[in-house]
């Protein structure tokens, strides 16, 4: 095992205890970590590897396979635009364009001020309200291109 001197934080120990002995718990543990930190920091993975006695490569293998897990800290507000079929047909690509233009970022990137992160996702399950986007989980339905600016400025103001 590698000899990094990172000390284990109490959260990680509690988490590991909760899932210890349960088979196949790695993904569940990663979910809890991402919920806590907003992403999976490298040193946390390292601690996890030591605590659970799983090689770091095994952990990274899993993190990188699943789209849901992030390795970099997201912006303060994550904008998730749905590009599921229903939203695609109702003009979601225009919303993506608009956000890209307004914030000067690409998919999966964070704006320079660290405020917004743009994700493109598949179906948020509100296809009846297509096109749909969400900001930190708050869902906006039947969004028009012209409304994007207003939604974003709401969060800018709050900041």
């Amino acid at each position: 095992m590698c000899s990094t001197s990172t000390t284990t934080s109490p959260e990680i120990s509690t988490l590991v205890e909760k899932w210890r002995g349960k088979k196949g718990s790695l993904i569940m543990v990663l979910h809890e970590l991402q919920n806590h930190y907003g992403y999976v920091p490298r040193d946390v993975s390292l601690q996890l590897s030591q605590q659970l006695d799983i090689p770091l490569a095994r952990i990274y293998e899993v993190i990188t396979f699943y789209n849901y897990f992030k390795l970099d800290p997201p912006g303060k507000y994550t904008i998730a635009i749905c590009l599921g079929t229903a939203c695609y047909l109702k003009g979601a690509p225009d919303l993506v364009d608009e956000v890209k233009n307004l914030l000067d970022i690409g998919e999966g990137q964070t704006s320079k001020d660290g405020l917004f992160h743009l994700d493109v996702v598949r179906c948020l399950g509100c296809c009846g309200l297509a096109p749909v986007l969400s900001v930190n989980g708050q869902i906006y339905g039947k969004v028009k291109r012209s409304e994007v600016m207003g939604i974003l400025s709401k969060y800018k103001k709050e900041d």
Partner: peptide, 14 residues
């Protein structure tokens, strides 16, 4: 007598 509000993801979003 009752009032039932549909509160699934789509309802809440709306």
């Amino acid at each position: 007598q009752y009032v039932k509000v549909g509160m699934s993801t789509c309802g809440i979003a709306a």
